[in-house]
């Protein structure tokens, strides 16, 4: 890894997150600490209910923690208002969702254009940039088709194109291979890994799929609302409970 890879991209310290009423409180994150570096692909793993998705939401600025600090590419998120958080997500984040979340009534290229249009880019510019990234993810010729006409793997490629079209520093992937078969999942992860190899980018992947652990630079294991350990080698993980 280069020296830049050791520069912190995401840092969450002492994060607490509770849901529900005080009498009936569910603890999602308890004094959670997390760190991701530039140029790396880090996976968040752990059993269901351990707080992976909550931590991902906090890092993504879609949830505001009750305690702790969150810093993404030098920007403190805790204490930011909704409008500032929305603006932060618009500029700095790309999302790949478990169920793709491609809008079925739009074409492939229109789906990819969404983040650029949200940023207020002109339609023609958004279209040109989207065409380029669609080609990059290997879907040239499918631009005008509807997502439903594509295979699961192709749909996830569209989702990746959409996540990266505005060149965000932080790519958030939530179970990106859960709806895909083994080979397709491996192809997608190879693509994501290649895309993470930039000093200006960091990829955080939440997954249960141990078949893709080999694509991670590091793996952070969660348990009971906190990171229990971080490993460099997936073989060191006990995957029996994942």
């Amino acid at each position: 890894m280069s020296h830049l890879a050791h520069t912190v991209a995401v840092r969450a310290t002492g994060v607490d997150m509770f849901f529900g009423t005080p009498e009936n409180q569910v603890v999602a994150l308890k004094q959670a600490d997390f760190e991701a570096r530039r140029g790396e692909l880090i996976m968040l793993v752990g059993p269901s209910g351990c707080g992976k998705t909550t931590l991902l939401s906090v890092i993504a600025g879609t949830l505001t923690p009750q305690a702790g600090t969150v810093e993404v590419f030098g920007q403190r998120l805790d204490g930011l208002g909704q409008e500032a958080l929305t603006s932060f997500r618009r500029k700095n984040l790309g999302f790949v969702f478990q169920s793709f979340n491609l809008i079925p009534t739009l074409t492939v290229i229109e789906n990819v254009m969404v983040p650029l249009l949200i940023q207020g880019r002109p339609y023609d510019e958004a279209r040109a940039r989207s065409l380029a990234i669609i080609e990059k993810v290997g879907l040239k010729g499918r631009e005008e088709g509807r997502p439903n006409a594509l295979s699961g793997g192709q749909q996830q490629r569209v989702a990746i194109a959409r996540a990266l079209v505005h060149e965000p520093p932080l790519l958030i992937c939530d179970e990106p291979t859960s709806a895909l078969d083994k080979d397709t999942g491996a192809h997608i992860m190879q693509l994501v890994r290649d895309l993470s190899r930039s000093p200006e980018r960091c990829v955080v992947v939440v997954t249960h799929d141990h078949r893709i652990f080999r694509f991670a630079d590091r793996i952070a294991e969660m348990e009971d609302g906190r990171i229990s350990r971080v490993v460099d080698d997936p073989k060191l993980l006990d995957t029996s409970h994942l």
């Binding site: 929305t86 603006s87 997500r89 618009r90 984040l93 979340n101 969404v114 983040p115 949200i118």
Partner: peptide, 14 residues
């Protein structure tokens, strides 16, 4: 389309 609107919100649309 609610989940798509939620996704658009998450992507930074106010």
């Amino acid at each position: 389309n609610l989940k798509y609107f939620a996704a658009i919100k998450a992507m930074g649309a106010g």
